[in-house]
């Protein structure tokens, strides 16, 4: 799936058409967003069925409440927020929490070691080191870095998804990067001159 923020122009038109009850537009919104929603959702839970159930609920509710939605709502951020909300609710329900317990929200940003495949040993060590460094980040730093590097969102977009202001979004990303860099610096003895040609995805 192509990241749909590159064809934003048609998005607002699509949203507008959907708000007037167009079922085709609804389907296109689903098709355009389902992959990135699924991936984003998989950061909050490793249970793929739970994430799919929540996507189901988000779209059903989106359609149900469409008459009350705002024309200025941006589809993608709106769906992201709705999905995150829905997953956290589902997790707390499945754990049958009493009113005193808060749901411990996790953010699964790290790659598993098996996923870190590269033919170059030095490069692999470096990538593993970064993975280790990621585990030291706060949940919000992880989410900010994920939104920046995996989804390629800009600071104002990260701010909207995470419900913080522009400056906080910037800080989350900057401090996250600094933390990873500092960790790598203090744990690495390697000097890198190797051309990194790992292909993403």
């Amino acid at each position: 799936m192509e990241n749909n923020r590159y064809n934003n122009i048609s998005d607002s038109q699509l949203w507008f058409t959907f708000l007037r009850g167009d079922k085709n537009a609804f389907n296109i919104i689903y098709e355009k967003n389902v992959q990135s929603l699924y991936k984003y959702g998989m950061n909050f839970s490793k249970d793929s069925n739970l994430v799919k159930d929540c996507i189901h609920d988000v779209f059903v509710n989106l359609y149900k409440y469409r008459e009350n939605l705002n024309e200025t709502n941006n589809i993608q951020y709106y769906l992201f927020k709705a999905l995150k909300h829905s997953i956290i609710k589902a997790i707390s329900k499945s754990r049958k929490l009493s009113p005193f317990d808060d749901v411990e929200v996790k953010f699964y940003y790290e790659n598993s070691i098996e996923d870190t495949v590269t033919e170059n040993d030095i490069e692999r060590d470096q990538l593993l080191l970064i993975q280790k460094a990621i585990t030291k980040l706060s949940i919000r730093q992880k989410e900010a870095l994920y939104l920046k590097f995996n989804l390629g969102l800009k600071y104002d977009e990260i701010a909207r998804v995470m419900d913080v202001n522009y400056q906080s979004a910037r800080n989350l990303v900057h401090r996250g990067i600094q933390k990873v860099r500092a960790y790598c610096k203090s744990n690495s003895v390697l000097v890198l001159f190797i051309y990194a040609n790992r292909v993403n995805r």
């Binding site: 799936m1 389907n27 689903y30 098709e31 389902v34 992959q35 699924y38 991936k39 998989m42 950061n43 799919k52 996507i55 189901h56 779209f59 059903v60 940003y109 790290e110 790659n111 996923d115 490069e123 470096q126 990538l127 080191l129 970064i130 993975q131 990621i134 870095l145 994920y146 590097f149 995996n150 990873v180 860099r181 790598c184 890198l192 190797i194 990194a196 790992r198 993403n200 995805r201």
Partner: peptide, 25 residues
């Protein structure tokens, strides 16, 4: 290399999954 290290490797939903999820919605 650093940026590549920060990218999470993710799986897409298969076409069948996308379709069957839509049909439940």
């Amino acid at each position: 290399l650093f940026i590549n290290g920060l990218v999470k490797i993710e799986e897409d939903l298969s076409e069948e999954e996308v379709e069957s999820l839509w049909s439940t919605i």
